[in-house]
Lab assay of single mutants.
Amino acid sequence: MDTYKLILNGKTLKGETTTEAVDAATAEKVFKHYANEHGVHGHWTYDPETKTFTSTE
């Protein structure tokens, strides 16, 4: 398992979190669920070199 990072740049919520996942697709599902639960619906990007997802509203 690898550690993946999420950076949230929402209108009402900003911050970072991490998750352990078997691959990027699994981490993306976890992070999108997390963002949706916190009302963040933004544009998603992923940097495979740093294993970092960013959601920007």
Rank of each mutant, 00 (worst) to 15 (best):
T54M: 10
Y34A: 02
E20L: 15
T52P: 00
T19W: 08
K51Y: 06
L6Y: 03
V22A: 13
E49C: 11
T50R: 06
A21G: 02
W44I: 07
E37P: 01
M1R: 10
D23W: 01
P48R: 07
S55R: 03
E16A: 08
A21E: 03
D2L: 11
A27V: 01
Y46T: 00
G42I: 08
T26A: 14
H41G: 09
P48E: 10
K29Q: 11
W44V: 04
M1W: 13
P48W: 06
G39S: 05
T26F: 06
P48L: 06
A25V: 10
D2C: 14
H33G: 09
H33E: 15
E37S: 12
K32Y: 06
T12V: 11
H38Q: 12
G42Q: 03
A25L: 10
K51Q: 05
T26P: 00
F31P: 00
V22G: 09
G39V: 02
T56A: 07
I7P: 00
T19N: 03
H38C: 11
T19Y: 12
D47S: 07
V22T: 12
F53T: 00
V40T: 04
T45H: 10
A35E: 06
A24S: 07
K14P: 05
G15A: 14
G42F: 06
M1A: 08
H43G: 07
E16T: 12
N9P: 02
W44H: 01
G39R: 05
A21S: 06
N36T: 13
G39K: 07
H33V: 13
T26Y: 07
Y46C: 00
L8N: 00
L13Y: 15
A21N: 01
A35K: 01
T17S: 08
E16M: 12
N36R: 13
Y4K: 03
P48K: 08
I7K: 05
Y4N: 04
A27I: 02
S55A: 15
Y46S: 00
E28R: 06
K14M: 10
T50F: 05
M1D: 06
A24H: 07
S55F: 15
T50Q: 06
L6V: 04
D47G: 01
H41A: 12
G15R: 14
T45Y: 08
E57Y: 06
N36L: 14
H43S: 13
T45E: 12
F53A: 00
K11D: 09
T19M: 12
